[in-house]
Design a protein around this nucleic acid. Structure first.
Lengths: 233, 233
DNA sequence: CTGTATATTAAGACGGCATTAAGACATCGC
DNA sequence: GCGATGTCTTAATGCCGTCTTAATATACAG
């Protein structure tokens, strides 16, 4: 999570280079795409955290890219466009864009708006509602700030996915989360196969978390629906 | 939840009126504040969904307002400012603002960015627990959000079909539901055989729900017609 | 009293779930 | 660049809970 992956969609090479060198200088990883088709492809295959999108692409309109991406993901999309007309902005924003910068843009402002987006992503992960940095439930503790979990004082060694999954359940304690909701939050997509993966993760997570994985204490299964973090004691 | 509450912080009366009339015209509710102090006060006491914040306030810097609000909440803050310098934008965004518009601004763009913010809020609260999500009748409680039912404080272990059936009856308390209606709601179909299944489910549900399944307290049978959830006490 | 509708019980079929293992993949250190 | 480590994906298997169906018992209405 320390080096966010950004997808830069821009056909103009100098501008693209400007952006990518800036990103590199500020400890981001990045992918690039020079047209709409490859943008959609890269977005779906690499699941970047944020998309920087130029609207003026050679093969399709940028707004179309937004629509395509939005059909299966709600990853943040920041538009960078030469079009400064209100109607363009509104169209892009209503299509699903999260922000809109007009060229020529300030590199510093772009970075600031990236930080805003990242901050929001982080808040989404840990649950913006409760400001507590530490979640506690029975013998389970999750330290969002430190990014680790403890059971009965001992640290749990969780993989990134297991940790995300646990956070998601914790932040929604008491609520049943559907399979599709969970997979969307974890991977930004939701096709049938992912439910199988989800089950595997749930198994490994439970093995680490539950004393008797056979009769789980913390994570309850709701058949045909999803999972739910129980309040303990 | 259909009419979001917006806090408008702006000392210049004409601008404030422009914003508020626009909001009113688009079915928003709003509060106003003309200085930083009352802005913080209104924000904390009324807990608006979104804050529209002018940076040029008479009593304190707008950035300070952001910091104060952010100390206890991460409600969305959209800055509207006459300052178009990069440094101002960056300072405000890094302080915790979610968006930054420069005056003179387009009303339509403001509305579009409000919609973006609302969309994001909605996504955040996918399974938001509203108080109405809990049905109560006598000792029976059904928590629709959590997807489970309680009798006298103890959780009932219901199968998916039993739970659906119970929900259907609860949501139509007092009304007699016909066999065909129930089977259609449960399985989307309604052939004769399903009534037999329905009876089996009703038996298992009653066994879990009623103290004396012989003389049911909650679910009444209407011979030749269907079933009905009774109001208890 | 008789026929019809409902309640109850049990048994088998079915499907979803947990679990395991193996291969693909990315990451990191050398 | 290359290998080692750890993680993710995919597929296969067995199990358990749930649903259906049928058979029997009970309540109700005419």
């Amino acid at each position: 999570m320390n080096k966010p992956l950004i997808l830069v969609v821009e056909d103009d090479t100098p501008v693209r280079n400007l952006i990518t060198t800036t990103l590199k200088a500020h400890d981001y990883r990045f992918l690039t795409a020079a047209n709409g088709e490859s943008a959609v492809l890269e977005a779906s295959s690499h699941n970047p955290e944020i998309i920087l999108l130029d609207l003026g692409l050679p093969d399709m309109d940028g707004v179309e890219v937004i629509h395509k991406v939005r059909s299966w993901s709600n990853m943040p999309i920041i538009v960078i466009s030469a079009r400064s007309e209100d109607t363009d902005k509104i169209e892009a924003l209503d299509a699903g864009a999260d922000d809109y910068l007009t060229k020529p843009f300030s590199v510093e402002e772009l970075l600031a708006r990236l930080r805003v987006t990242q901050r929001r992503l982080a808040a989404l992960q840990i649950g913006a509602v409760n400001a507590d940095a530490v979640f506690t439930n029975g013998k389970l503790k999750v330290d969002y700030a430190a990014g680790c979990a403890f059971l009965d004082g001992e640290e749990l060694h969780l993989t990134p996915s297991e940790y995300k999954l646990l956070c998601l359940l914790c932040k929604n304690m008491g609520k049943v989360l559907t399979h599709t909701f969970i997979t969307q939050q974890l991977w930004g997509r939701s096709w049938e196969n992912d439910v199988a993966s989800l089950r595997v993760f749930m198994a490994t997570l439970r093995k680490k978390l539950e004393k008797e994985p056979g009769s789980p204490q913390y994570i309850q299964t709701h058949i045909g629906v999803g999972y739910r973090m129980m309040k303990v004691e």
